[in-house]
Design a binder for these strands. Sequence first.
DNA 1: AGTTATGTATCAACTGATAGGTAAACAATA
DNA 2: TATTGTTTACCTATCAGTTGATACATAACT
Lengths: 202, 202
Amino acid sequence: MDMQATIESATTAVNPTKVAIMDAAEKAILKNGYKAMSFRDLAAEVGIKSASVHYHFPTKANLVTAVMQRYKEEFAKRLILPKKKKSAAQKALNKFIDGFKETVVDQDNLSLCTVLSAEKNLLEPATIEELNEFYQLKLDWLGTVVSYMRKDWMTTEEVHNYASRILASLHGASVLVKATGNPDMFNQATVHWRDLIKHLDS
Amino acid sequence: MDMQATIESATTAVNPTKVAIMDAAEKAILKNGYKAMSFRDLAAEVGIKSASVHYHFPTKANLVTAVMQRYKEEFAKRLILPKKKKSAAQKALNKFIDGFKETVVDQDNLSLCTVLSAEKNLLEPATIEELNEFYQLKLDWLGTVVSYMRKDWMTTEEVHNYASRILASLHGASVLVKATGNPDMFNQATVHWRDLIKHLDS
DNA sequence: AGTTATGTATCAACTGATAGGTAAACAATA
DNA sequence: TATTGTTTACCTATCAGTTGATACATAACT
């Protein structure tokens, strides 16, 4: 029987073909969306036949879930919590914004989550669950980092609001860039955070 | 020969079937994305056959362009410029945010532009042009309104940044709501504007 | 008579998925 | 060691369903 691709990925040894398929799938989704991604196109990119893709990922739902799960895990791996110190938190948050810009905006993409959110009704519960976990991960991290930046105590509501604001800014800015085709739009929509990060401790 | 559906819509008398098709198309795109929208489904919703949909809109590209154009025009119609007065501008901006929440977030949708942006590579230049114009419309309006709210002079850069920030906030917040399934997320990510609108004149 | 708005019928292309074959790698055992 | 069985990873071939689009017939209104 098949193992659940959605469960094994973190522990099992990597399979080169499987990884190549997931790479191609992620790329395809970012380019044209989930619905437009086809097994045959992925197979062609990897250099195998579409039936072989089904061997590794029985269904499309299975594949997109695996891709989303990997996306989440890779992100979590790079998302280390800074020291509970103002300057470290400031640095970490600046780096978070830089990372978003480099991996998403600079490549004229939206984030995988934004794309999948737009096609959420086509996804299965398992995929949606990965989506939720990914955002919760980001929001929790942002909340913690923001709280580290302030010497005074913040209510949980205040912390949540800051985290949501920052994440919304970044995602929205990437949509603006994509829609208008103007890369400057990202900085226009987010530079204020750079200043605010410096003065958020007050 | 066929008239260009992309040109006539503003001036020509409304055609009930055509309108019904566009309504169905807009709904379908918001629900599942552009790629997943099919002529047969639209036809079924309107109560005609798919060939008849092609009679009104020769190609899918033609249809989506018409839908996007109407979306833009309808939006422009409701987007009246307030008086050059602080209180009027404040009121207008609050209403803009309310409108976005009601028409997008409260219906568990993303905006049509966000969805189409995610599938931008599948669109034809004419459709993308509509997308651009729509955002320019919003950004220009926001910039003007923001400048009305400040008694001191703002650089054009400052104005642009404010407009981009606000628009990014709203769009990003709608993505957060959709992705997490948590409607509160919109207020979390945007309440600060309500306060800021009151004190933006300083 | 011509235009408008539908319908029927059909096409070629593409889709996700399955059945079943094949060869190589690996494992177990005589 | 040699042989056999099993698993892994591909393949070919094919299916049924969906897609955008077209050709052509039809009826109603102008």
